[in-house]
Design a protein around this nucleic acid. Structure first.
Length: 489
RNA sequence: GGUCGCGUGGCCGAGCGGCUAGGCAGAGGUCUGCAAAACCUCGUACAGCAGUUCGAAUCUGCUCGCGACCUCCA
């Protein structure tokens, strides 16, 4: 088995062997949500992708410090470093304190993450909790000469920075190309250069969220929080920094610039970017208005959805695609995944009931190696899932008696499924279908059906089965005479 | 317009020089009182054109189509 892990690094635009800065330890930072509204599914995909990455790193035995921030200040409506803060705007709209907005949507975010069975990060720092660190960092950048102050606002000097460091390296662009595509500065603009961005923003009197600083009352720019918090908890240089692809060109580019301007060190060894979620081929985004909320997806209460899909089904759906590919949401695709997911989980339940033989007809070791090979190749869950379905085939065949498996292979197979399905992919069996009354009723109804079958009264037994089917309850007669039933959502 | 990426069978989605994943749907079969499930078999796909090569879905060029970023967004 290949035990080298390869990760696609956005910086080099190729897969690189993953070698942590400190043996056995991994520092990973992921840009978290801006909690001024409900998380939408695109956000979730990124966090689920990094949850998988976190889980696999843990599975490999690394001690991982996973930091995912919560942006609760400083995120402006526009790119021009002016206008309303998103939180303040929402607060006015909902007639709440900005921090009430933050609290409300932070809790909502955590609920959704829990529904998707993601693990909590090791640290989840907030921007408002790290104002001092951000101010200190800005002071150093100013001292180092990469920033300037105008009327209480501090700007990062991109052109100056670019003389020493390749500003556009993350997106493989030259500064001249970037400059050529910016809008003309209008007369009002305080910035020296069109690419310059704010590190600290002067607050107007009516502004609700503001803090004292050496430059007067104000609030931090959007990018500085990640630089300040990542270096605080992971050091000036750390292993992995992740986020959605849409953050690559601006947010992450500026993060690198800030950190280098402050520490004169590249902050990150491996940059990882997850791809976008699309709906009918169009990117799901807040501004396009084509996103559904996780809750709407679970209940099916949305015009684009035929029905609801459970969080685990959605998680499985995402696992069938590589994290760097776009994922298109459609009812057809979701329904296909739902069936596949159930097939996988049904096989897992069967696994515990399987009987060992003295011989094995299947190659479990190769299967296991293939699973590791898939994951070691830049976390290729699509291939992993395909391999696991080979395992499903084996499980069903052994159960049917057409293949056999030894006790030791069976143990390997059980561990393999537990490791990859439960621990690494983070899938869990859906909540059990029944409750006491339903179970009791079903036992009664099915026993009547079994009686009529024994009497060859198939009209009655089929009537029972057909009626149950109308209620979305599927009845299965097993070969050994037992009868199983399941809800079909 | 600039930069980058993508176009794979009915649908979703891996692969990225030869061994032609996987899921869903479909066809046939085995099993079953009948179903369901499961298992077996099948469809022989890689946008188009030209080229490199013994050999290309995979490399190169061109054409067409789609998307991302350059504007808040994971």
């Amino acid at each position: 088995m290949t035990n080298k892990l390869f990760i696609y690094n956005t910086l080099s635009r190729q897969k690189e062997e993953f070698i942590p800065l400190h043996e056995n330890f991994v520092g990973m930072y992921v840009c978290g949500p801006t909690v001024y509204s409900d998380v939408h599914l695109g956000n979730c995909r990124t966090f689920i992708s990094f949850d998988l990455i976190y889980r696999y790193l843990l599975h490999l035995g690394f001690k991982v410090r996973y930091v995912r921030n919560i942006t609760d200040a400083g995120h402006l409506e526009g790119d021009r470093d002016e206008g309303d803060d998103k939180f303040a705007k929402k607060a006015k709209l909902e007639q709440l304190e900005p921090m009430e907005i933050v609290q409300k949507y932070s809790l909502g975010f955590h609920d959704v993450m829990r529904a998707f069975n993601t693990m909590s990060p090791s640290i989840e720092p907030t921007a408002t909790g790290h104002i001092c660190e951000q101010i200190e960092m800005i002071k150093v950048i100013l001292t180092n000469g990469y920033a300037y102050e105008v009327n209480g606002t501090v700007y990062f000097d991109v052109e100056k920075y670019n003389k020493e460091y390749p500003y556009g390296q993350l997106t493989n662009r030259q500064l001249d190309d970037l400059l050529a595509n910016t809008r003309e500065l209008d007369g009002q603009d305080e910035k020296h250069g069109p690419l310059d961005f704010a590190l600290w923003i002067n607050a107007k009197a009516e502004h609700l969220m503001k803090w004292p600083s050496p430059w007067g009352w104000g609030f931090p720019g959007w990018h500085i929080e990640c630089s300040a918090m990542s270096s605080k908890y992971l050091g000036d240089t750390f292993d992995i920094h992740g986020g959605g692809m849409d953050l690559q060109a601006t947010h992450h580019t500026n993060e690198i610039a800030q950190s280098q301007a402050c520490n004169h060190k590249a902050p990150v060894k491996y940059w990882m970017h997850t791809n976008m979620l699309t709906v009918n081929g169009v990117r799901m985004s807040k501004s396009a208005g084509n996103g559904f909320l996780p809750g709407e997806l679970f209940t099916g209460n949305h015009r684009l959805l035929d029905k609801g899909y459970s969080p685990m089904c959605v998680r499985f759906f995402m696992m069938q695609t590589h994290y760097r590919s776009t994922l298109d949401f459609s009812n057809e695709a979701l329904q296909a995944s739902e069936k596949g997911y159930r097939k996988l989980m049904t096989a897992m339940e069967l696994l515990d009931k399987l009987k060992a033989s003295s011989t094995t007809t299947s190659d479990i070791i190769t299967l296991k190696n293939n699973c590791y090979e898939a994951m070691n190749d830049d976390f290729n869950t699509a291939v992993l899932v395909a391999q696991l379905f080979e395992g499903v085939r084996i499980i069903n065949s052994v159960n049917a008696g057409s293949e056999t498996i030894t006790a030791s292979d069976l143990d390997t197979l059980k561990k393999l499924f537990n490791d990859f399905v439960i621990d690494v992919m983070g899938l869990m069996p859906e909540a059990s279908a029944g409750n006491g009354i339903a179970d009791g009723l079903m036992d009664l109804v099915l026993s009547i059906r079994t009686e009529s079958k024994t009497k060859k009264d198939f009209a009655t037994s089929d009537k029972i089965r057909d009626s149950l089917k109308q209620l979305k309850i599927a009845v299965k007669d097993e070969k050994d005479g037992t009868v199983n039933w399941t809800y079909e959502g």
